[in-house]
Design a protein around this nucleic acid. Sequence first.
DNA 1: TGAAGGACCTGTATC
DNA 2: AGATACAGGTCCTTC
Lengths: 217, 217
Amino acid sequence: MALTAAWESRGAAQEGGGGGVELARSGKGGNGEERIRQEHMFDKVVTPSDVGKLNRLVVPKQFAERHILPRLLGGAARAACPGAVLRFEDGRGGGKAWAFRFSYWGSSQSYVMTKGWSAFVRDRRLAAGDTVSFCRAGARLFIDCRRRGAGIVASAPVTRLLVPAVVPRVVTLMPQRSTPSDERAPRGRCVRLFGVDLELAGAQPLPLDLQLALMRR
Amino acid sequence: MALTAAWESRGAAQEGGGGGVELARSGKGGNGEERIRQEHMFDKVVTPSDVGKLNRLVVPKQFAERHILPRLLGGAARAACPGAVLRFEDGRGGGKAWAFRFSYWGSSQSYVMTKGWSAFVRDRRLAAGDTVSFCRAGARLFIDCRRRGAGIVASAPVTRLLVPAVVPRVVTLMPQRSTPSDERAPRGRCVRLFGVDLELAGAQPLPLDLQLALMRR
DNA sequence: TGAAGGACCTGTATC
DNA sequence: AGATACAGGTCCTTC
């Protein structure tokens, strides 16, 4: 089965288009630096199940059907793509990337990211109440997260501007976890999300920006 | 886990050789009676999953690769035989036989018996902690089981002798199940296992002793 | 409809 | 410490 479909830029990639964000990051600079026009796709405040033993993230149907499915097989629907793999670059930069199997569970009529998801949860120490955020820049996908309480109210329309680098602290309604914070990404950095250009640490720009690989069978 | 003997008569099939067992059973006699030289292959103390809803028995890799795979397709390995059916005669005699689908699950890199296994579990009222025992005699395969606590210490070398007809009771470390014992095969008979000749009740000697049928795909 | 079967996945223990 | 084995799960199709 050929999953060719281009995730291509329909709006944001047009110059000066609608929701694109273009910022330069003055970071480690060098030849790895690159301007990236990013478009926010969606946030989700993860549930206990999303970060628990079920090893899956339920993807809101709207997001799945509006942003992911149309790109798979050029509009062919559920049955056609039983097991696609989506590759997301780490929103913090550093060249790390995450691959998630994206599929539809007919029994619960929901879209999920399964294989690979638990690794992200572990690595980022994601906990219930935290927010994962998905973004794209052209054909490249990005994922990042922020802690609960570090929130930005995400009520803006699709392809909105991303979070500012500095945000007001809000009241924490849920008890803080016991995990030592120094084991996590610093909160300031986490909040920054996709609002800035990503530093490309690796030399090569990762040949496959959006890797849609059908898994065996 | 003691993974013992070669499938082939390396020692046992030679006359008077090492591990072969040859006993006459004076039972129902008649023309169905037959002497069978049996060679023990392997035991497994079944886990809750092996007898639960998963409907599969995980076959220890060593046993699968050393005793089963070489016989399938003349040594062709995993990819070549994705779904074979192994036929085992019931170790208690009576002409009953069990067919199990034998396959390899690449995702967990483990060998399993699937289709047909749950029927055996039900029929023999196999429970976690019980032991299933696989044996062969020439090209014929046999399966039997014994209750936990009725154990024989299986620490003998390859192609060891099988269990004696009478064994000392050993201390039962695990609590006895509540299942009434009269619903099961008598313990004495069960313990006997393959240590005696099998009575062939059926008229025809079952045309295919070792049935290796490749299934679809 | 439900149970069985088939393929897939993952954490844990172990080597 | 990385790789492996496997116990215990998932969903989904078939019957």
